Computed example of a mutant assay.
Amino acid sequence: MLRDVTLSLPPGGVTEVTGRNGAGKSTLLRVIAGLRRPRRGVVKDRPGRVGYAPERFPVDQPFTVRTYLGHMAAIRRVPADAVGTWVQRLGCDHLLDVRLPELSKGSAQKVGLTQALMGDPGLLILDEPFAGLDAATRDALPELISELATGGTTVVVSDHQRCTEALPGIDRLHVADGTVTRLASAGAPWTLLEVEVPEDEADTVETKLRADGYRVRRPER
């Protein structure tokens, strides 16, 4: 459960949410997106158009990709050409006639991104968007996020794979023990700290440090 959370998200900013599994990152993202109401307090000035891509796209639906995206476009009053633009840009136009339950994780992730992006959102929430993506899409997505932010979209992203780490000016929020803490931004000074750990614990320690929002560099083996 999250408590005593106070934060502001500037228009056109990119904010990365970090924290270990189960810490409450997805809960925070859903509250920001308006999919979950806080028990106390309020969320103010949320843009009218919100795009949300969940960590796991719900593929247990009896639709093809084309039918699903068309249905979502109609609900949101999105022009049909916007759907075509995004399926091409995300490289999933060849999936249009595939049924949702038949999609691989990476393909389902692309469909989830498409439905989140096609409505020209003023607020974009991405929960682990890089998981399962092919290398080309994974490499292109940070630039796309930066492009949207430059255009005024507020982007909030949870990213265990650290693909957004190099984005200029990115802010970071760390979720732990029910609280949300703002970490040093990318423009703030960082200090190099060398830590020695037993070899058989290195992977575990690295994973924990990355989840806590720290940058980790390991020497060449």
Rank of each mutant, 00 (worst) to 15 (best):
A140K: 00
A82V: 03
P79I: 11
V197L: 07
A149W: 01
A184Y: 09
R66L: 15
C163F: 04
A23C: 15
G151T: 02
A53Q: 15
Q109F: 03
G12Y: 04
L192D: 04
D127M: 03
P129C: 02
L148I: 01
R172D: 00
R138K: 14
R162T: 07
V31F: 02
D177C: 09
L167Q: 01
V31G: 11
T67H: 14
P101N: 04
I32L: 15
W190F: 13
I145N: 00
K44H: 14
G132D: 08
F130K: 00
V156F: 05
P47R: 01
P47N: 01
R36V: 08
W190R: 15
G119A: 03
A176T: 10
F63T: 03
R138D: 09
A149H: 11
R3A: 13
L35D: 09
D45Y: 11
P10L: 07
D177Y: 06
A82Q: 10
V14P: 01
P168K: 05
M118E: 05
Q61D: 06
A23S: 15
T64V: 05
I32G: 04
G132T: 11
P11L: 06
G22V: 14
V50Q: 00
T137W: 10
P10D: 15
A184K: 08
R221S: 14
R30M: 12
P189L: 01
G51H: 01
T179N: 07
D93R: 11
R30G: 01
T85Q: 12
D4Y: 09
G106F: 05
A166V: 00
A74C: 12
L2P: 11
M72W: 08
T18E: 11
V65W: 09
R46T: 12
D45T: 07
L133S: 01
L103D: 13
L133Y: 07
H160M: 14
I125N: 11
R138T: 08
I170D: 06
V78H: 13
R99A: 06
Q109T: 02
L173Y: 02
E16S: 09
T114P: 02
A136T: 13
T179S: 12
G122N: 06
I75K: 12
A23T: 14
D200C: 05
R172L: 07
R66D: 15
L193A: 12
V87S: 14
T191V: 14
F63P: 04
V31T: 15
G187I: 12
D120W: 00
S185L: 02
R66S: 13
L113P: 01
S146M: 05
A73L: 10
Q115A: 11
I145Q: 00
F57D: 09
L144R: 01
A74G: 07
G51D: 08
A33V: 08
Q61A: 10
V14N: 03
E201N: 12
E199A: 12
L133G: 07
G70D: 09
T204L: 04
T15K: 12
V43S: 07
T114H: 06
L193K: 14
D60S: 15
G187Y: 07
L173D: 07
S107N: 08
D45V: 10
V157Q: 00
E201L: 12
P101M: 02
P142R: 01
D120V: 03
R182F: 06
L96W: 05
R3V: 15
F63S: 08
P79D: 14
G34T: 07
V14K: 02
V65E: 10
V59C: 11
V197N: 02
D97M: 00
G119Y: 02
T164Q: 03
I125R: 09
A140G: 00
L28R: 09
